[in-house]
Design a binder for these strands. Structure first.
Length: 389
RNA sequence: GGCGCGUUCGUCUAGUGGUUUAGGACAUCGCCCUCUCAAGGCGAAGAUCACGGGUUCGAAACCCGUACGCGCUACCA
């Protein structure tokens, strides 16, 4: 148990659907919060206006709800640290960026995309790491004022000091050290006035009193930028925990090209949320005993970040299917009847039957199916009118 | 290319220096049960612990190197 009550967050980008990797991230945050009597917060990171998808936020919330991961604070339910949608917090980011500029921790940059592309190209040609050359750092206050007055578009960049060591102590990955010379002067505020992930994330995590940042491993490389921001603001860093990635059967990052990755795909294929959650919990975590069938309460009870693995895990559909069978069999007959009736209504069968009849069918078939709809496939004879021989 | 992370049966994993002839689960195969198919029970096969060096009386476990994989290297998250 952690001393103070932790506050954690799941911060997805509304780009269409909830990815199973995202579900696992959300789950681990949820389990950690519940295990330690903390709060689980949902925050929508919609700062990339070019990738916005209509209805994605609603879909995300619905899918999370279907999965059984109720959040304590966030869109719709509210909370003391709102708003929980980043596009509604623009003035907040501006305010904090101003402080950074005043303290020379950030600066205006008026460079064009063409110039940026050009220096990047040259650096790559010389096999150097592509980095911004701090060209605009030299600009005087008057020059900056004049350019802004002229309506030139600009971004705000993080002013990274060269050659200092940045240590990160990650609960899962352990001690990781970066040299600041490999860190680019990251754009914090884009020319459209929206913040980048790096700025918005740090400001919000601080303002929302997030104690533990539990997120995917793809963020580990940018964590030094975040740590720098915490230091520049004079804020206490949260505890970091970077989760290993979910992989395809070929050990590449789980992608839509090869398999279903959207939680809603699994839901639509008849997987039970209990099974999906149970399965995804086991992708990178074990209690250390040999238990593999879990109810959500048992997961909450046993989950600790210290027992999360370091290496990526392949998403194995066969094992998920087995867990679905296990969870399906734990359901009562009326519950399976309800599920099955929905499948039956969508089928080509037209006869009507009583719940008692469906109950008999379910009881006859429950040991023989992985999904409720399989009754239709494996035993269609229950629903066909017998013909005289 | 640079930086970072990782590497135990096909897959998910146990393992924190001696109890390990490396344990469990899914999948596979066999047997039992059984009018059938399942479920269930029992069992088999499957990992020279990526590779090479060290440290140690002893290493899957600790250290170094190599290989391979993955991630990041955007005014995307």
């Amino acid at each position: 148990m952690i001393n103070e009550f932790p506050r954690v967050r799941f911060a997805p980008s509304p780009t269409g659907y909830l990815h199973v990797g995202g579900l696992r991230t959300a789950l681990y945050n949820y389990l950690f919060a519940k295990h330690n009597n903390g709060k689980f917060i949902l925050r929508i990171e919609d700062t990339d206006r070019t990738r916005l998808v209509e209805g994605a936020v609603e879909n995300l919330i619905d899918t999370l709800k279907w999965s059984g991961l109720d959040y304590d604070e966030g869109p719709l339910v509210g909370g003391d640290c709102g708003p929980y949608i980043q596009s509604e917090r623009l003035d907040i980011y501006n305010q904090y960026v101003k402080k950074l500029i005043e303290n020379k921790k950030a600066y205006y940059c008026f460079c064009s995309a063409e110039r940026l592309d050009k220096i990047r190209e040259e650096q790559q040609l010389q096999k150097l790491q592509p980095k911004y050359d701090k060209h605009c750092l030299q600009l005087s206050a008057e020059e900056i004022e004049q350019k802004i007055k002229n309506g030139e578009s600009y971004v705000i960049r993080l002013n990274v000091l060269p050659s200092e060591k940045i240590h990160i102590n990650d609960i899962i990955k352990g001690d990781v050290e970066f040299d600041s010379s490999v860190i680019d002067d990251q754009v914090l505020l884009k020319s459209d006035g929206y913040p980048t992930y790096h700025l918005a994330n740090v400001v919000d995590d601080h303002l929302m009193k997030i104690t533990h940042v539990i997120r995917g491993e793809e963020w580990l490389s940018s964590t030094p930028k975040h740590v720098l921001l915490y230091d520049y603001f004079g804020w206490e860093r949260p505890v970091f925990a970077h989760l290993p990635l979910l992989l395809n059967i070929d050990r590449k990052k789980l992608s839509k090209r090869q398999s279903d990755v959207a939680v809603e795909d699994f839901r639509d294929k008849g997987f039970l949320h209990e099974a999906l959650v149970n399965f995804v919990a086991l992708l990178g975590w074990t209690a250390g005993d040999d238990v593999e069938y879990y109810h959500i309460d048992e997961l909450i009870n046993k989950f600790t970040l210290e027992r999360v693995n370091k290496s990526g895990a392949v998403f194995d559909l066969e094992k998920l299917t087995w867990l679905n069978e296990e969870h399906l069999r734990k359901k009562s007959t009326p519950e399976i009847v309800d599920m099955f009736k929905k499948c039956y209504e969508k089928s080509t069968f037209t006869n009507t039957y009583s719940d008692e009849y469906f109950g008999m069918v379910v009881d006859a078939m429950r040991e023989r199916i992985s999904f409720a709809y399989e009754i239709l496939i494996k035993s269609p004879f229950f629903f066909e009118t017998p013909r005289n021989l």
